[in-house]
Write a protein that binds this DNA or RNA. Structure first.
Length: 641
RNA sequence: GCCGGUGUGGCGCAGUCCGGUAGCGCAGGCGACUUGUAAUCGUCAGGCCGUCGGUUCGAAUCCGACCACCGGCUCCA
């Protein structure tokens, strides 16, 4: 028989050959790396028999698809090991995920896994791997499946729910069997447990069955699995790197901010250095907004309940709001968003088409009641300063506003060293407000803006908020992590709710379109992400201290002071570390503080009016004239490089 | 909010299982050293052991509640 390959070529195979045979016929390397196949567009085991005319692609272990197969199979082995070690354990689901896998269990008598158990389970897993147990696929009828898993309530529920992702399709279910253990599973799996091995169990956590907090809490074990020990080691190294960059740790070490328990969870205070960085970020943002035609506004932190009734927040967002305060017969709430207040500014006068587009901007601090378990450093807080803007425009201005807005957003993010973007265009969900024609216009305008900006994006059908389509911009940081950052939303709801209008050139009243947009998202969160992106080593324009002058001996201190004076006169943030401890120690401290420049001054410098420049991450350069250094650093700061 | 873990000077940790009035390193003060590119030496001071309550002759240690943090789940108009 003949089968065709992804490169368009075809290959002759004996009748009855499997996908694994095909891989072997192509080459030993491929056979070794193969973990599964895609036959006519559907994933299949390597043991699957092929037929005349099949289109076959071999899935190798060093691809995302291949790793998912490995991880899925490793999850099975883990569940098998748990069932061996914890008789009576009920197993729920165990899918592959980014970087690894997990499996959820219900242990007898409400048992819990301890960290020591992870080691025992891992040992048993390695035994199973060593036993080279084949993964055998079986197809059962629904009734056979129910009988087979009669003592596994979660599996019974999956079969009854006919969830194709979990191996139950229509009236048939598929099962993968190892020696003495079987799981309901769609597959595919590796041919045998011996193909696994580069894995590690990471942590145990609670997880609700079906992700539903009203259902039982199961015990989840997370693991990671890779195609080779090398890839596993690299992954573990990436985790260490992420830990090294953790903004919560760096925030303390660099004296930027902290979370006083006396204030409460999710409510940070910024220290002088952190406050300075924050000011630099905000000043930059303000300057850019001013240049881009925004008007600055300021709104209070509290408002009467009636405002949030008008805006709809009490109807839709009450769970995220802080509880009300009763004052002089009225009920006040801390604001969870700035938009209602901005609507009132628009509404304070009658507006003409000549006023549009009207772009209101503020750093507005809002308060959101985040459940205690979700707080996470600066990236998830309860007091959020949004760089918030609402743009009011005529319908025919929407497309132009969106595309210039998108360019503006990208320009600002790039300045912070974020250069990899991925956007999502979220379109109309099933439940929505407004007219389909408006949705189509706005969605098209958003799509055009994305096309114009030339960034890659995907369409998330039906993922929009009920009131508007939106663009979410994700960035990749220096170690490749993806963060959701800016959001651009077109809102159809607020203008009618607040009865906003403008008088058009035709002298009749029209509804404006409103674009909501946050660029940093939240200043606090952006700050945290930046710290991690730069691993605390902020570029010179953002560094709280840009340069430190170190006199070699005490008798150089007078000269050091004059250098400091010159730096300060040039607007450079600098200080001096006097010679009361050895130079090496002072350099070490400056390096730990991640200062961009250390300037050492000794005899030759006093004589020649120079400094020794020790840049962060670079080579020492001696005998640099002070003026030359100042010029270079000023250029670096001005260009924000 | 739920599951599991943690909470000891500014920071990082030991002591907790087997109750008997707290220890180390860094940082800080003081003194000496006067140093050319990642840790100079000595000395001093600093903690009612997250909070509140309970058991006990006696609690950092055992029990309970609460608070905060960490890892997840959930949520993310």
């Amino acid at each position: 028989m003949k089968v065709s390959l992804p490169d368009g070529s075809s290959r002759d195979l004996p009748d009855g050959a499997t996908a694994g045979d095909l891989a072997a016929s192509i080459g030993r390397g491929l056979a070794k790396a193969a973990v599964a196949a895609v036959v006519n567009g559907a994933q299949a085991d390597l043991g699957r028999s092929l037929h005349e005319g099949d289109e076959v692609a071999i899935v190798t272990s060093n691809t995302e698809e291949g790793r998912y197969v490995l991880r899925h199979s490793t999850a099975h082995v883990m569940a098998q090991a748990v069932c061996d070690l914890f008789p009576g354990a009920k197993y729920a689901i165990g899918p592959p995920i980014d970087d690894g896998f997990y499996y959820d269990f219900d242990l007898p008598d409400g048992g819990r896994f301890s960290d020591d158990d992870l080691g025992r389970i891992e040992v048993r897993m390695r035994e199973i791997v060593g036993e080279d147990q084949p993964f055998v696929r079986e197809e059962l009828s629904r009734d056979e499946g129910l009988a087979r898993f009669a003592d596994q309530p979660f599996k019974v529920e999956i079969i009854e729910g006919v969830d194709p992702d979990e191996g139950a399709v229509g009236t048939a279910v598929s099962v993968y069997r190892n020696v003495g253990w079987a799981d309901l599973c769609r597959g595919p799996h590796v041919p045998s447990t011996s193909r696994l091995g580069s894995f590690k169990l990471m942590k145990v956590a609670g997880a609700y069955w079906r992700g539903d907090e009203k259902r039982p809490m199961l015990q989840r074990i997370y693991g990671t699995a890779w195609e080779s020990d090398k890839a596993l080691a690299e992954h573990l190294h990436r985790l260490e790197e992420a830990e090294r960059r953790d903004h919560r740790k760096l925030g303390l070490e660099l004296d930027l901010f902290h979370f006083p328990p006396e204030i409460g969870g999710g409510l940070p205070v910024f220290h002088p250095k952190g406050g300075l960085v924050r000011k630099l970020m905000e000043d930059f943002s303000r300057d850019e907004h001013e240049a881009a035609g925004y008007s600055f506004v300021w709104t209070p932190h509290l408002a009467k309940s009636t405002l949030f009734e008008t805006s709809g927040h009490l109807q839709w967002y009450a769970d995220g709001m802080y509880p009300p305060m009763e004052m002089e017969g009225a009920t006040y709430y801390p604001k969870p968003m700035n938009c209602p207040m901005h609507m009132l500014i628009y509404k304070s006068q009658s507006r003409s088409y000549r006023d549009l587009p009207m772009r209101l901007f503020e750093f507005g601090t809002v308060y959101r009641f985040e459940r205690s378990g979700v707080l996470h450093g600066l990236t998830r807080v309860r007091g959020i300063t949004q760089d918030d803007s609402h743009i009011f425009c005529a319908p025919d201005q929407l497309a132009g506003e969106l595309s210039s807005l998108l360019a503006f957003v990208l320009k600002i993010l790039r300045t912070f060293g974020l250069t990899e973007f991925e956007a999502e265009l979220a379109t109309r969900p099933e439940k929505f407000v407004g007219e389909p024609a408006e949705w189509d216009q706005a969605t098209e305008a958003l799509g055009d803006a994305l096309e114009g900006a030339g960034i890659s994006y995907k369409v998330a059908e039906g993922e929009g908020a009920f009131y508007a389509p939106k663009i979410d911009i994700h960035v990749r940081d220096a170690i490749g992590r993806r963060w959701q950052m800016s959001t651009l939303q077109v809102d159809f709801q607020l203008a009618p709710r607040f009865d906003l209008e403008f008088v058009g050139a035709d002298n009749t009243r029209h509804r404006p379109f409103i674009i909501h947009r946050a660029l940093f998202g939240s200043v606090e969160r952006f700050f945290g992400i930046l710290i991690e992106h730069y691993a605390g080593a902020l570029p010179a324009w953002l560094a709280p201290v840009q340069a430190r002058v170190l006199p070699v001996r005490a008798d150089h201190e007078e000269y050091a002071a004059s250098v400091l004076g010159q730096l300060k006169a040039a607007g450079i943030r600098a200080d001096v570390a006097e010679a009361d401890e050895p130079l090496g120690g002072r350099i070490r401290k400056a390096k730990l503080e991640k200062l961009p420049y250390v300037l050492v001054v000794g005899d030759s410098d006093v004589e020649a009016g120079t400094v020794g420049v020790n840049p962060r991450g670079g080579e020492v350069e001696r005998d640099v004239p002070v003026g030359t250094f100042v010029g270079r650093l000023r250029d670096e700061v001005t260009s924000r490089s």
